[in-house]
Design a protein around this nucleic acid. Structure first.
Length: 423
RNA sequence: GGAGGAAUGGCAGAGUGGUCGAAUGCACUAGUCUUGAAAACUAGCGAGGGUCACACCUCCGGGGGUUCGAAUCCCUCUUCCUCCGCCA
């Protein structure tokens, strides 16, 4: 969430910037400032009541010790009304603080100045394109047909044991999945990211920490009995590793990578666009997370973009990069680049990675700070990106690498797969 | 799952109703000394709110209670440890 102090000092600039998201921030910001003022004045009142009662208590202690019980009892009587006051004030204070928090949760992150205005994905700005779109035979198949033809992914079996959106990978399909995970992790480690294995279930506090709660409650699977959530992305456990931490400026940069399955309820549309691997309830993803000094976070974002470009070049997949417009930008992000692979057989672009700088938005919720050389504390900047999400990469490979003799395996993956072709 | 014990500052660890945000040691930071380092010595060293700055307020695992006053007493939750049982 946004920092109160920043809101106090830059109200108009924030209102202006949030227009790019088509978000009218004026009413909520004014409420925030009102509420904040109310909170502070209650706090001051409460503090002075407590100060007085602390003082009386001390006096009473001294009086009892010196045997002046009568005088002590007189003071005791005085504390009764103070107690009532403090109870009342602290209730009001709590209420104001909660209200303030609820308001702050409703305000999305302020977009970076380079974010284009716009309301839908059609307004996203293409900033880069690379790779050769292969010419396929006229009878080229979409991946769900290929999966069936070569018996490498079974969607019906997944329906049988769980439900729609939970595919079963078989034989070379399973092996290719495992190969992709290992390959991505190896590339990330090579680039300086430390590999982590983290829990796939998180508690409520973690959900709030990265911003999935409260506004995306319905998108996560919830285990009511234990009040735990299945992670929608490794971003949640990995970023929450740092909740309530204060690191030293020397610790930058922190670069982590991790593979996890991801679970999304995504009660959404059905149809051709969500067929096959295009949209799933469970899928695999390798994530990269960075923690940076505020001055370096945009350099870091560029490095992450370059890193993902390299992977896609090695895989020889045609892709493009989009700078998301205000309307398409995630709630917590200040700037996001989406990577899309072109699926020739489907004749459309498939999103395979999303790389974002959250600036201090997540750090503020997480209370994740660093100490500078002078010992002053500041919020860090957090960033993350997929490197990469498996299903659509797999779809892209199956579709773009199909030949009359089967599906060729990209060269860099062959050592991981142990075979060169699916046939 | 059963029985018992514990949770205090970055770590270790004292503190069982008042002057305790909290001894002491280690670690850390700065300075002195040294060619440099180490050692020694000196000083500093938790977090949040609040203030121009002080003052002041809150926090001893979380929540609630008793009391004029709680790290200390009571209730509850969570976590960890030991023993037994079960188990990949």
């Amino acid at each position: 969430m946004l920092q109160l102090q920043v809101i106090r000092e830059n109200k108009d600039a924030i209102i202006n910037a949030l227009k790019k998201r088509n978000f009218d921030a004026k009413p909520v910001l004014e409420k925030v400032l009102d509420c904040d003022e109310k909170r502070r004045s209650l706090q001051t009142k409460l503090d002075s009541v407590l100060a007085e009662s602390n003082k009386l208590s001390k006096d009473i202690g001294f009086l009892f010790k010196s045997g002046k019980a009568d005088e002590a009892n007189v003071l005791k009587a005085k504390t009764t009304s103070l107690k009532e006051d403090s109870k009342k004030l602290s209730d009001e204070l709590n209420q104001a603080a909660n209200q303030l928090n609820d308001l702050l949760y409703q305000i999305p992150n302020v977009p970076n100045e380079t974010v284009p205005a716009g309301s839908t994905d059609e307004d996203n700005e293409e900033v880069f394109r690379e790779g050769v779109i292969p010419e396929l035979a006229s009878n080229a198949l979409p991946h769900w047909e290929l999966a069936k033809k070569y018996d490498i992914i079974d969607f019906e079996l997944g329906v049988k044991i769980t439900g729609a959106g939970f595919p079963v990978y078989k034989g070379k399909g399973a092996r290719l999945q495992r190969a992709l995970i290992s390959y991505f992790l190896d590339k990330n480690v090579e680039a300086g990211y430390t590999e982590m294995q983290v829990p796939h279930l998180v508690n409520e506090t973690s959900g709030f920490g990265t911003g999935q709660l409260p506004d995306k409650e319905g998108q996560m699977y919830h285990i009511g009995e234990d009040n735990l959530y299945l992670i929608p992305t490794a971003e949640v456990p990995i970023t929450n590793l740092f909740r309530n931490e204060i690191i030293s400026a020397k610790d930058f940069p922190i670069c982590y990578t991790g593979y996890t399955p991801c679970f999304r309820r995504e009660a959404g549309s059905y149809g051709a666009h969500v067929r096959g691997l295009n949209r799933l309830h469970q899928f695999d993803k390798v994530e990269i997370v960075r923690v940076e000094h505020p001055e370096n976070s945009y350099d870091a974002l560029n490095q992450m973009v370059e890193h993902i470009k390299n992977i896609l070049r090695e895989l020889k997949l045609p892709y493009r990069i989009l700078r998301l417009c205000g309307g398409d930008l995630g709630f917590t992000s200040a700037l996001t680049f989406d990577f899309e692979v072109f699926s020739t057989a489907q004749d459309r672009w498939l999103e395979i990675s999303s790389v974002s700088n959250f600036e201090t938005y997540q750090a503020n919720r997480l209370k994740f700070r660093f100490k500078d050389e002078n010992g002053k504390k500041h919020l860090v900047h957090t960033l993350n990106g997929s490197a990469l999400a498996l299903p659509r990469v797999l779809a892209g490979i199956l579709e773009n690498y199909q030949t009359e003799n089967g599906i060729e395996i990209p060269e860099v993956l062959q050592p991981y797969c142990g075979f060169e072709r699916i046939d």
